[in-house]
């Protein structure tokens, strides 16, 4: 299947144009959208993650690959939705209240989309009530919280407490990340998971989804 390999390579190379045109060509040939995702793009993004972990790839490469995957997914998603196929999961993501930094959060959102998740991005400086509202509206299974500043880390706890008070904490898994955040802190505030970087965030989200269905 040379087309699958080409699509795989396009995502790995972060070649957005090639990813889109290959997807179009394969659709025209009648290749099933789900096959393109599972046989070409998800393995490619896993390889991107592996290269990131061993420092062959850095943030720029990660971003380009996620964009290539997104370009292809934009063509595939409507078809998937029409056929009733479900995304890998639905994630509500945002930088917590008081924190305007969004580089890391945007990167995680791109990687999650690249990993087949549907992402509701609430932006930066997001109040706990907005997270609650978005979870209720979207039916998300995961809430992802970001903070860059040490001083806004306590807002993560406030947000988790608010989810509790709203009675929806047990409907979602909460994952946290950002430069000053540690796994110890994640445990301390009652989050379900912590990831050190955007690539690991996708693995974590998959693990949390598997756990929530179990």
């Amino acid at each position: 299947m040379p087309e699958f390999e080409k699509l795989h390579q396009a995502v790995l190379d972060g070649d957005q144009k090639a990813a889109r045109s290959l997807t179009e060509a394969m659709l025209a040939e009648g290749v099933a959208p789900l096959d393109m995702i599972t046989k070409a793009m998800v393995p490619a993004m896993d390889e991107v993650g592996r290269r990131f972990e061993c420092e062959e790839y850095f943030v720029p490469e990660l971003l380009l690959s996620a964009r290539a995957m997104k370009a292809s997914m934009e063509l595939l998603r409507p078809l998937l939705t029409a056929s009733g196929a479900q995304p890998a999961g639905r994630v509500v993501i945002g930088t917590v209240k008081g924190d305007l930094h969004d580089i890391g959060k945007n990167l995680v959102a791109s990687m999650l989309e690249g990993g087949g998740f549907e992402v509701v991005d609430l932006g930066a400086d997001v109040a706990p009530e907005k997270f609650i509202e978005a979870v209720k509206q979207s039916g998300a299974q995961i809430v992802a919280l970001s903070a860059l500043l040490t001083v806004t880390m306590p807002s993560m706890r406030t947000t988790i407490d608010a989810l509790n008070q709203a009675g929806i904490r047990n409907q979602v898994k909460v994952m946290v990340g950002g430069a000053p955040v540690t796994s110890q802190f994640a445990t301390e505030i009652g989050a379900d998971g912590y990831s050190e970087n955007a690539s690991a965030a996708v693995q974590l989200a998959r693990k949390l989804m598997a756990g929530s269905q179990a």
């Binding site: 420092e55 790839y57 850095f58 943030v59 490469e61 580089i103 430069a179």
Partner: peptide
Amino acid sequence: FDTGKNKDRTMTG
């Protein structure tokens, strides 16, 4: 410079 095993690269590598 805060990225990588030896913390000798910036976030963008």
